[in-house]
């Protein structure tokens, strides 16, 4: 079946089997392999993207269910060569080792800050608890999200990107 989804502001249209998962639809789009899969059971969170601004595990959605919706992936975080503060925070605070869970962690974190500009550490932990990181022990991910929140609070104008 033919499916059209807006991904990072561009419409992607492809003829795919009806059972195609959103994560596979995204990853089969040239240049968009940053969204990963890791568990098949919606436990690991490596596949988290934003759908209409909300963090969603893209392995829990059929591509067909997302027809007509806006998807934002890790590749959509950097705009015009400027990193999203979340990306910057992950680098500043050493919040990634192997980098495999990182796109999902960053998309979950972006969604948190979009809804709550000044979360507590516990709120950050809850927001990223849909993902599993085997490398970092989470402490630096919490620090990275805090870094991004403080960076955004210090900006004279909002840095959030309209998707």
């Amino acid at each position: 079946m033919e499916i059209s989804i807006r991904i990072n502001g561009e419409t992607v249209t492809r003829d795919v089997p009806p059972q195609t998962l959103l994560v596979h639809f995204i990853r089969d789009t040239p240049g968009l392999t940053g969204t990963h899969w890791g568990c098949d059971t919606s436990n690991c969170g490596a596949c988290i993207v934003q759908i209409d601004g909300r963090a969603v595990k893209s392995c829990t959605q059929l591509a067909a269910m997302v027809e007509g919706h806006e998807v934002r992936t890790v590749e959509g975080l950097e705009v015009n060569g400027v990193l999203d503060p979340i990306q910057q925070g992950f680098h500043e605070q050493h919040a990634l080792h192997c980098g495999f869970c990182t796109p999902g962690m960053m998309m979950a974190s972006r969604s948190l800050l979009d809804e709550n500009a000044n979360p507590t550490d516990q709120e950050i932990r809850v927001a990223i608890s849909g993902g599993i990181c085997r490398c970092t022990g989470y402490k630096n991910i919490v620090a990275a999200v805090r870094w991004a929140a403080e960076y955004e609070a210090a900006q004279p104008s909002p840095t959030k990107q309209e998707v």
């Binding site: 940053g34 890790v74 590749e75 975080l77 950097e78 990306q87 992950f90 680098h91 990634l96 980098g99």
Partner: peptide, 8 residues
């Protein structure tokens, strides 16, 4: 190595 990972 972060440069590539944070960009997917």
């Amino acid at each position: 190595e972060d440069a590539r990972f944070i960009r997917g």
